[in-house]
Design a protein around this nucleic acid. Structure first.
Lengths: 192, 192
DNA sequence: ATTATCTATAGATCTATAGATAATGC
DNA sequence: ATTATCTATAGATCTATAGATAATGC
């Protein structure tokens, strides 16, 4: 039942990708190692050939999901050079509406509080990703100084994360829509 | 070992209060029924005389924590009638810094993504609380129309939640401080 | 020969229940 | 007599490990 080195590397990458999706959808404690492996078409026991522990996988999945967001924001910025902020916020807030659910959405909005409760590698990988995303936003907004741009970018990032977090948690669809509409208007425009 | 009806009611209230703190600190899956009961000075088996299930406790703890936030925001508004927004945001963002940790902080910032993954009573109790908090903020901001006030209040609430969520998740203390400083400046002032 | 994966299981943990106990409240 | 709480445990689930298997790569 052994596979080639290339195949094993692909298997590892697929485990990380699937884990990232399942974690965002169900939470770190909402999905077990055995089910992640099953979704990847592998068996439970094989997991520990790829990772030292579930925490190890969580750190890798976190880093990979953040890296994917960085690539998406970068390509959105390049595709809309005159309204990078609008393109990013629209993409960011439209995710849920398009029925993709949280599994393909932002790691920050899906798991930041859970990441805060974990230590070590998970948090540091997440922090790197957060800084990288922030840098993209800094270049997507205007400001009389770099410091002012950074200030705006931080507020927008917090606003976007809070918007998605609240809209998802709320039970009332109309209220959720209202939250997202306001989020798009307030944080998607490069005011002042 | 039986206690009076009054004592039993107090025990129930204490279980809810302690559960609310532990859930915020460790997550819904991070603390078990047995440990909550132990913290309340009771035994595991007694739990099911007070609640039908852990989910039932989660809903009660969620509602109680939101109600406490509503009372706090209300009294802050009344104590600072000319800068209710500033008083609320300062209190909201200062929590972590004062070493209180998340256990006494905001339910939205600590558990909103986990609440989004749960169904039924937990989400509806949370939604009620969120609407009540929003109403307080609406009255704490100015605007040429009620609709504009509400829009500002929603953006501020999302901004505050996102600020706390990101500042907590991030590994770098300087970065966390920067996020909270910006959040206080941008969302704590009744601009425009 | 090495190693990626598989089967099987140990050990821990967690929710929920069953039945016993003892103090309250009619 | 009722009932709030306790002790003990069933049943499920989850992480991690041990040992076997079979195809790769030197």
């Amino acid at each position: 039942m052994r596979v080639s080195r290339d195949q094993a590397a692909q298997n590892r990458a697929r485990i990380i990708e699937i884990a990232g999706q399942q974690f965002r959808e169900k939470g770190f404690d909402g999905i077990g190692v055995a089910d992640v492996m099953k979704s990847a078409g592998l068996t439970h026991g094989g997991f520990y050939g790829h990772f030292n522990s579930k925490d190890d996988l969580i750190a890798e999945a976190c880093a990979a999901a953040m890296a994917l967001s960085v690539r998406r924001w970068t390509s959105l910025s390049e595709a809309s050079p005159d309204d990078a902020l609008g393109a990013i916020t629209q993409s960011y807030l439209a995710g849920d509406a398009h029925g993709e659910g949280q599994m393909s959405g932002c790691m920050m909005a899906a798991l930041a509080p859970d990441i805060a409760r974990r230590g070590g590698p998970v948090r540091s990988r997440f922090t790197e990703g957060t800084k990288a995303l922030l840098d993209i936003l800094v270049n997507a907004v205007t400001g009389r100084s770099k410091a002012r741009q950074r200030e705006k970018a931080i507020a927008i990032m917090a606003g976007l994360v809070g918007t998605v977090v609240l809209a998802r948690a709320v039970d009332d669809p109309d209220f959720a829509r209202e939250i997202k509409r306001v989020g798009a208007e307030v944080f998607g425009r490069d005011a002042e």
